[in-house]
């Protein structure tokens, strides 16, 4: 609960709690959570390039608002020429409140409900990202980058743990996109 209020990072939170439950030491937990969170670094770098900031929530506050879903929504809005730092902040404020409320509710109701994975509820994450991804693909190059990122994330997961796999896949595919792009078109 406290973790939700302070960190609000779904993947790192799940992994830490899972590790703690299996008796892992603090160092293992910290390193795993850090590995899973490194993609925020890429998000931040990316946001700084394209996010319009007509209104200015100060950077330290905005930083608290960098996470998967909000990043996706902000990108969609920016693609339609209406995104802004204010939008990112607002969207993530809503997400944050939902996250904290829902984890609290989960603690209370958790005993009563079946395991979310067993009823397939966790498929909502890839589905949401898919719905955000598809409108972003406007060129063949964009499609290629998406395929390469997805395939390499899947392949690398068998070699390294999930966090680094995602980061390497994102960085590699984005670099490929830039190499093919050479200034025309974009994704």
């Amino acid at each position: 609960m406290l973790f939700s209020v302070l960190a609000c990072s779904e993947s790192a939170q799940m992994a830490s709690v899972g590790l703690a439950a299996s008796g892992a030491g603090p160092l293992a937990i910290i390193l795993t959570a850090l590995g899973l969170s490194l993609r925020h670094l890429l998000y931040g770098l990316s946001l700084a390039t394209w996010l319009p900031r007509p209104t200015q929530p100060p950077t330290p506050l905005l930083a608290a608002a960098v996470f998967d879903e909000g990043f996706g929504l902000a990108k969609r809005e920016a693609a339609a020429n209406r995104g802004s730092a204010g939008f990112l902040f607002g969207a993530n404020g809503v997400l944050y409140l939902t996250w904290v409320t829902a984890t609290s509710a989960g603690i209370v109701l958790g005993q009563l409900l079946p395991d979310p994975a067993s009823i397939g509820l966790d498929v909502i994450f890839p589905l949401s990202f898919l719905a955000l991804l598809l409108p972003l693909i406007r060129t063949r190059r964009g499609a290629l980058v998406a395929v390469v990122a997805g395939a390499s994330a899947l392949g690398l997961r068998n070699v390294v743990s999930a966090g680094p796999a995602v980061v390497v896949a994102i960085a590699g595919a984005a670099a490929l996109g830039a190499a093919l792009d050479r200034g025309e078109g974009g994704p």
């Binding site: 990316s46 390039t49 991804l133 964009g142 980058v145 984005a174 996109g177």
Partner: peptide, 10 residues
């Protein structure tokens, strides 16, 4: 960096 959102979701 413009390709990061796309790559991240995938």
């Amino acid at each position: 960096l413009h390709y990061v959102p796309l790559a991240a979701f995938a």
